[in-house]
Design a protein around this nucleic acid. Sequence first.
DNA 1: GACCACTGGTTTTTT
DNA 2: ACCAGTGGTC
Length: 732
Amino acid sequence: MSDLLANLNPPQLSAVTLPPQHALILAGAGSGKTRVLTTRIAWLLSTGQVGPQGILAVTFTNKAAKEMQARLSAMLPVNTRAMWIGTFHGLCNRLLRAHHKEAGLPALFQILDSGDQQSAVKRLLKNLNVDDEKFPPRELCHFINAHKEQGIRAAQAEVYDDYTRRRVELYAEYEAQCQREGVVDFAELLLRTYELLTRNEPLRQHYQQRFRHILVDEFQDTNVLQYKWLKLLANYGADDGAKLFAVGDDDQSIYAFRGAEVGNMRDFEREFRVQSVIRLEQNYRSHGNILEAANAIIKHNRGRLGKNLWTDAGAGEPIRVFEGFSDLDEARFIVDECRELIRDGISRNQIALLYRSNAQSRVLEHQLFTAGIPYRVYGGLRFFERQEIKHALAYLRLIANPDDDTAFARVVNFPARGIGARSQENLQAAAHQANSSLYNAAASLTGKAGASVGAFVRLIEELRRDTASLPLSEMVEHVIDKSGLRQHYLGEKEGQERLDNLDELVNAAVNFVQEESGGDLAAREEAGDLAAFLTHASLEAGEHQALEGDEALQLMTVHAAKGLEFDIVFLSGLEQGLFPHENAAQEREGLEEERRLMYVAVTRARKRLYLSWAQTRMLHGQTRYCVASSFFDEIPEGLLRRINPVSKSAYEAPRASGGWGGGMGGGRPAAAPAAAGLPDGLRIGMNVQHAKFGFGVIVAAEGRGADARVQVNFGGAGMKWLALEYAKLTPA
DNA sequence: GACCACTGGTTTTTT
DNA sequence: ACCAGTGGTC
């Protein structure tokens, strides 16, 4: 055990060895958060304070859960399987599978991912004859999820206008549809579990007594419902409830936009009368200058719980700042610099190229490709979200649960088997009328359409029969062949990649069955291989497409980089309107989240950090004229080293390109053409001054004469459209 | 039912 | 610029 605690610093040690009580650990970036969490569990177990079955550890991502499990098994010769370690969704799934009857769900309930949910909503709107222009499925999904994530059912939803009344009705209809089909969406997993435990006293008591220690990772990312869920399991208000050990960093809360509630940290501290708030402030990751910059940035946020990271590593190098004429120029600089770093022996996967939004990767990728540097882009379409995979899974889902209308609608005519939109509408109507699933309504269709739909139903039944005794992987293979999917993609021009992916799905099934340890055993025993595999596919959308283990540069959004670290980090596109993003920069809350994002980005770097921006950038097919991000103003100049001449705007007098430009599109931005209707003296890209908003750059123009409007990027004051007739703009 | 042209919408994203 | 989704034509 002394081994266990060796090399912990004093705050880490006190967190790990805290006597049983509620605790909040404020763990700064790079302060050894995961280590504290896992060591805490190991310590609790090895001191005999609790058995493995008394531990519940919750994370947000499967990756984090797996890492925790792996680290624990390395630390202790203990059966980690008796512990409940997983994501909120994974654990809820486990509970619902075990108690599906009490929860009012079929044993083989399916899980809708966000895409499935949207299709389900679309189908609902169609059935109810609701105009999907007035109620866009995307927006409706968001409305429904936002309510569920607050723990609010349709019956309790607040109605403040006609539009919302209708949305609430649709929410209720959607709930009914899901119930009828035996499917649950992500938010439902949590809400249903919460309600199950609330209403079912014996079950609730069972789990409240079982779990003695509940540990939560990334607590700043919990939403309202997740916190309620934790309170329930910890038997909030009782003396003999589990002890909650929450680890988080309010400064790294970057998911408020999807419902995360940083306020949970404060609420937790207050409601649970937390006596021990422990701050982990020693950073083991970054050199001093980098850390100092991060601290300086985050200091601008209000209402922080307060924390100041320090390091005993030296100051290190200054932060390098590069200003490009264009996004291309910026990308070229970055790639040149990377080439040199690689030549100097830096490992490629220790270099990260970060950006605010995915669209920015294109220009970087292009330059990297040209330079022949291997790179890996994180994000994008994931394995189980690919069209061909979803199709194959839909067949499997129908085998498991014929009432799954989402799956039915997806493949009833794929590959094409003459069941057109018309027949499908008829079927929908029949099913709606009979209040039954599409599958069951199929028999009621007559005529030609009835025959083809009947043939489809028979196909599914045949598949079910023929695969009933096959092992999972052979089952998948059989379905791919006999459904006609393979044949279909064989005949498609670009079908080879899809075929490869389908083969990969068979492999995934093989691995899934073999991999006893990682899988959710309880769920599998309950429901069989197929159901467990389908759950796995929904809950764990799969590895990102790029190859693992390659010696490659790492490209990703700042969000995706959270939790990771690299020797060298390039943070590009530091322009007002892009980072901080214009949609967020208007309100303080939004800007503060952007600032936390900036803080996360900066603290990813161990040894060297590059910050760059471009005076012009192609965005949505148009050239945007940019000003530097206001975040530059928040970093003390003394920490920075400007690697090329600094200018205030794209339209200063021409000057040397600093050696990075030259060539196509790389040099000064081409002089902007006089935009239609702009009065003399105004040009796109020009610097102007406004009485209220201050200095800015004209970014776009439209209309002429009295209607002429210009879009001006005012930096800190944001992006504005101004009517020239009223706004007083003077060239600056 | 297949193909093509047009449209709108593009911050971040896990489960 | 680029993607996905849609509506039209053959």
